[in-house]
Design a protein around this nucleic acid. Structure first.
Lengths: 148, 148
DNA sequence: TAATTTTAGTTGCATAATGCAAGTATCAGT
DNA sequence: ACTGATACTTGCATTATGCAACTAAAATTA
């Protein structure tokens, strides 16, 4: 079969660029990493620092500092857990939610535009394929275990 | 339709992790960026600095320094062009070629393992889908133009 | 030919990201 | 109460990043 790495590599680079370009909302210049953090916080329910750091496969010390920045920017709020005073529960502020939603819309509308170059059958096939890939990758023992 | 960003995000993160984990070959601790540089140099024919930097959508100054490191590691060679003495032609050293090939094998065998969780029909569908996606993304006016 | 502008690449900052080691505070088990 | 584990934070030291300013060599123009 043909060289798989080649085609995946190209795909990844394109998404990487999308990530780079997507992330300025209004006055906020958000880095890709910060955008990912907002995304994960928004997705999970009352997550701790550890949970998000692990979801993003990030070193906890680097993550800690990123969160400090996001708190200063008033995009993220840190609330000490009442159950366990060691843990901080992360949540988005109103602004944070706004930024996260804006980025989400920007990326989804970009994806819509990309998919508009396909017919309905292709669209469905591609979506199904990506899901298949995700499942297959999660079954793999080789790499990338931290992801569910 | 469902949230496309979600499934692509997951896929991207997995590949990002693969990139992080793949890149130590023997004694060489290669960063993902360096691995991408080796990959591009290997792919193109007698490329200049600019060409590779642009292919990777990298700032030329950062790239210049990355190349300096790779030259010191004896993975890349810089040859002044005889046609235009301003340009440096990049090539892989024997070691560089070895490292690039090793990484290529590692990633491809990981992908093979991933694809082993599918049947033949699914495999073909997924590969075709990725190609379709690449084509669609290259048609998009929205983002990520530097890529061919 | 000489003067000017462009281009290819390098360096000098200043800033951000990274991760290990070591710290503090809290919790859980004995 | 004592010990060890857990959740984070901070102190470095290293690397990555990109703008501005540089050198050298084309290419363009006069």
């Amino acid at each position: 079969m043909e060289n798989k790495r080649e085609i995946f590599h190209l795909l990844m680079r394109r998404f990487g660029l999308l990530d780079k370009n997507c992330c300025s909302v209004g006055n906020f210049e958000i880095s890709p990493i910060q955008s990912h953090i907002l995304y994960e916080i928004d997705k999970q329910y009352g997550p701790s620092m550890q949970q998000i750091a692990e979801a993003l496969a990030m070193d906890i010390t680097t993550f800690s500092r990123q969160i400090q920045t996001l708190v200063k920017l008033d995009l993220v709020k840190k609330t000490p857990s009442s159950q366990d005073k060691r843990v901080s529960i992360l949540s988005l502020t109103v602004q944070g939610k706004f930024v996260a939603t804006s980025i989400d819309h920007a990326i989804n509308s970009y994806l819509d535009e990309v998919f508009s170059h396909m017919n309905e059958f292709e669209r469905e096939t591609v979506i199904r394929s990506i899901k298949l890939l995700n499942e297959a990758m999660s079954k793999s023992t080789f790499c990338c275990t931290p992801l569910d």
